[in-house]
Design a protein around this nucleic acid. Sequence first.
DNA 1: AAAGCATGTTTCC
DNA 2: TGGAAACCCTGCTT
Length: 532
Amino acid sequence: MIGLRKRDRSLSNDGKSGSSAYSGKRLKVEDTRGNEAEHRSLKTQEIRTAEDTEILPGEEGLSEFERRRLKNLRDNAKFFEEMGIFKAKDAFRELSEKPKVKPTERGLKRGAVKPEPLPRRAPSLRLQNKDPAGEELPERPTIFVEPTEEHPRKASGPLTMCETLKNAEENTETSHNNFLSSLKTLGEGKEKKSVKVESSLENFLKACKRMKLHEDRVAKVVKDRIFSVAVHPSETRVFVCAGDKWGKIGLWDVESKEGDDGVFLYEPHSRPVNCMFFDPSNASRLYSCSYDGTIRRCDFNKAVFDELYATPEEDSNRCSGFDFLDASNLVVSHSDGDVGLVDIRTKGLAAEHMYQCHRKSVKTINVHPVKKHYFLTGSTDGNACIWDIRQMKDKKPVSVDTLPHGRNLSSAFFSPQTGKFIVTCCVDDRLRIFEGSTPGEYKQRCSTRHNNHTGRWLTPFRFMWHPSREDVIVTGSMDRPRRIELFDTSGHLIHTFTDGDYLGSVCSINAFHPTRNILVGANSSGRLHVFM
DNA sequence: AAAGCATGTTTCC
DNA sequence: TGGAAACCCTGCTT
């Protein structure tokens, strides 16, 4: 961007300001890295051939050199015109013009985070520089400070919502108590029990056209980049949450004014919160999983973040995702390619089983919605694999289906009702949909180009299904003006959500409400956008 | 194997 | 006010 802008400026100088009579030639010289001697010889040559310069009206009295200079300006302008430079420049300016979307000041206020020293877990043997037997190891050279040392894992065991609260305001106490009381009623709300929304795609898209953003529906909900987002299934309240880079979870009661415009911020983790879900069988429980190697469950009735799972070492095997096998068992994916089985009823925090499923990091893990013994993993080793939990005897199991992609995957998910479709997000800039009736038989159905090049600062895209539709996939987009896109199972773009006033950034992570027409988009600076 | 590069938004000055 | 700096644990290329 900086480079392009500089080039743009130099073009306008050459075309208009007349800072150089030889701009046309000079471009060539610049291309050969500014050879000064060559430049000078060109100059003298041109002055010598200036004798045939015609004297135009208004140029009387000007020196031959000046006339030649003006002619060069005209020639250059004509040349650029013919090349379409000016048109291209205007088009470029139009494209690169930043939308005038002012970042919202709603939600968390700027300023210092309330320093709340939490008790930290005893450092691991590795961090104490001891071998597994507890013997002191030789001093290691410290080349750089590891992030875990600056952001150590939180103390093991339950953390209360009060002790992890991070809102900056002074007078949050009463406000927070009100919020905690309101959380208790959130889970009690009369929920439609698994009522399938069976409206046609056409009707759904009509409803999408009516969904709008509004000033009150954009807020800063966490401090940093958002890695995960969840929508509460409440039929009456609009309640959304975001997990950020430094282990914070922001809860936003969208239509409330308590705290910072309805936002309360907690820090139950210490590293990116990659994956968050409400318990499908109990809407007052929010599960979260983090690169700090732990899974916690926030219980709104107890106002506590319980710890359900922890890897033995805090940074060697980061948790990247999880899903529910049944009410008490989870599958957990890790950054070293392992998949763990966790029984959350047991007292211990370790996994029951750990399998080496991939050679590289597993990005997403997803249980088949009907045949619960199958789960799907998407990995940076370039494969999406389906595994059968009943056949996993060895430490190194064999997948029952492998969908190879040339390159790194950032997500792979079964369609949420039947599991008949799989959508994958790959860094080769493709959205792929696979179709199959049973694992082992999935075949690619279509592949659509989609710019997934989010780069280093933005959270990579994840193609997410509408949680109760087989025909709608939602994703962020790099296109301008900034937008959130919907695709169907043929890989066709079927809708884009935009807003000239309130959506001005890339929403990498998005989630639909299961039954209501509510869509939340999360950007890489902690802001949530609620279309409804 | 190690280093370099690219990408976008916000905040600060 | 515009422009620079900060963010930074990702994946690719040299």
